[in-house]
Design a protein around this nucleic acid. Structure first.
Length: 490
RNA sequence: GGGCCCGUAGCUCAGUCGGUAGAGCAUUUGACUUUUAAUCAAAGGGUCAUGGGUUCGAAUCCCGUCGGGCUCACCA
């Protein structure tokens, strides 16, 4: 807090003191409205101009605008806006004194009768007026609102008060996550919470945050994924399990990436990745239906029909379709790099065949995938936790789901052979020793779990923030995150 | 991390060639009183992000720092 008091704040402090001099508490314990703006607007939409009713209501909300010295107040509650009409013929002396201490931004409670003004505005004609929270800071300007991005993130509460569009997007995100949860609950998945402090980094290729855990005197990784713990639960006999929670990856921030993000993972025993492809399609369709009440959304100018099952196409075929080259025709990393170069992609930094394939896909194919699609059968090199493909030992049964050119999630037929898993981890450790600090670590406790027998299982992961960004049309991931992390103020 | 751009009143923004800091809304005082970004009259409100430098003189030019945005690279 600044020590100097702004003129605007001082004016409000003066009014607060005046209220207290009157023996009035502008921070009461309780105030219960019985009506809300939008339902009232609906209920009385046919009330003619200039007509009064005998209907008494109590409303509460924030004073967003004040005209004619308080005679007209625009009240905003969680449902919408309604005008308050304060006329001295309906208010006693005391209430009129309170009205003089009103500022824009104060939260008020009003009881009165419903009328529509001659100019056509539905109003509550106040017979009792209360200030139930005196605001000491002014709201941003009524016409232009709050546009400064930094302030919108640092003071999200002000953004929510003033920017209805921003609020709508954030609330929709909450509904989306809620719908995801409902879908899994309906399908008899058990929701669990697994540790966020991991002794070993695993479940995804990423740079971790590291922190010290005093009570245990050990360094831990903040989780980059929930995968290994959830699979341990499947080993333990929990056949259908899911978790929605924060993952942390110590990497860059841009409109599609934030270091602290909300991940969904779900595991379904007795199925393979074809079953999961179907489940993901049903999940997304369910969410779109539930939240938007339709199958079709116009996103980034494209009409997307979520009622059609998402096609599943192999990454090799997609690259072939876009570039004409077949990466299965080459075996070595050198030949793969040369093939990449022949289609204009520099993959010299890629240390194995699979990474070259991924690089060419990212450069040439990713942006073209507008409609929902499962990009399947990834190179084994880049996917250490998925089962080897039943038809091709160089590939794994792993697909990534894309929408509007962005990766939304992934799914595997989960690798269940403990001996093969151990070999895959060893390959990851070799990558790590070659300088890839995002390669996964050998998790012996996970190998141990698999060694007790891991039923054939399919699993999926999906970024909830990304899903929300795509479905709401938000410009950046941070618009679907209530409090994005910013640098400390100095 | 690289490149580009931004930071001026509570908010939204002007500020020309380096020459006393501006507007609208908001605030204060008054008028008016069924308004709709109410209107009318007047007033107050500034460490021009911050620290240096150049200069007779810096919001303006130069350098550093802090914070933010866009973008490229990396990751999902």
């Amino acid at each position: 807090m600044t020590e100097e008091v702004s003129e605007q704040r001082q004016s409000r402090l003066n009014k607060l003191a005046k209220l207290q001099d009157l023996g009035y508490n502008p921070y009461p314990y309780r105030f219960q409205p019985d009506s809300y703006a939008h339902p009232l607007q609906e209920k009385y939409k046919n009330l003619p101009n200039g007509e009064n009713t005998e209907d008494r209501v109590t409303v509460a909300g924030r004073a967003m605008a004040v005209r004619n010295d308080g005679m007209f107040i625009d009240l905003k509650d969680k449902t919408g806006n309604i005008q308050i009409f304060c006329h001295k013929s309906h208010l006693d002396e005391n209430n009129l004194k309170l009205l003089k201490c009103l500022d824009i931004g104060d939260i008020i409670g009003v009881s009165g009768f419903i009328r529509r003004t001659p100019r056509g505005e539905l109003s509550v004609a106040a017979e009792k007026f209360d200030i139930i929270a005196k605001a000491l800071e002014p709201l941003p300007e009524k016409f232009h609102g709050l546009t400064d991005v930094e302030t919108r993130y640092r003071k999200r509460y002000v953004d929510l008060i003033i920017n209805d569009d921003a609020k709508q997007i954030l609330l929709t995100r909450c509904k989306i996550v809620s719908a995801v949860r409902e879908f899994f609950n309906q399908n008899e998945f058990l929701e669990v919470e697994t540790p966020t402090f991991h002794p070993i980094m695993g479940g995804a290729n990423a740079k971790p945050f590291i922190t010290h855990y005093n009570a245990l005197d050990n360094d831990f990784y903040l989780r980059v994924a929930t995968e290994l713990y959830l699979k341990k639960l499947v080993v333990g006999g929990i056949d259908r399990v899911f978790e929605i929670g924060k993952n942390y990856r110590n990497e860059g921030i841009d409109k599609n990436h934030v270091p602290e993000f909300t991940g969904l993972e779900a595991y379904m025993a007795y199925g393979d990745y074809n079953d999961m492809a179907d489940l993901i399609y049903k999940l997304v369709r369910f969410v779109v239906n539930k939240v938007f009440g339709t199958d079709k959304l116009v996103l980034e100018g494209h009409e997307i029909d979520f009622s059609k099952p998402f096609p599943k196409v192999s990454i090799i075929d997609l690259i072939k379709r876009e570039t004409g080259v077949d990466f299965l025709s080459v075996e070595t990393v050198e030949d793969a790099r040369a093939l990449a170069k022949s289609v204009g992609v520099d993959a010299d930094h890629c240390s194995n065949w699979g990474k070259v394939v991924q690089e060419v896909f990212d450069e040439k194919v990713e942006a073209t995938l507008i409609e929902p699609i499962h990009v399947s059968d990834m190179p084994k090199d880049i996917s250490p936790l998925a089962k080897t493909h039943r038809d091709n030992p160089r590939l794994v049964e792993h697909f990534d789901t894309y929408l509007l050119g962005m990766e939304l999630g992934c799914a595997y037929s989960e690798l269940s052979n403990p001996l093969e898993q151990l070999e895959r981890f060893k390959a990851q450790m070799a990558e790590r020793e070659n300088g890839d600090d995002e390669a996964q670590m050998l998790d012996e406790s996970f190998i141990d779990a698999l060694s007790y027998g891991f039923v054939p299982t399919t699993g999926m992961g999906m970024g909830m923030d990304r899903l929300a960004k795509l479905l709401t049309g938000a410009a950046t991931l941070r618009d679907v995150i209530l409090f994005p992390t910013l640098k400390k103020m100095k």
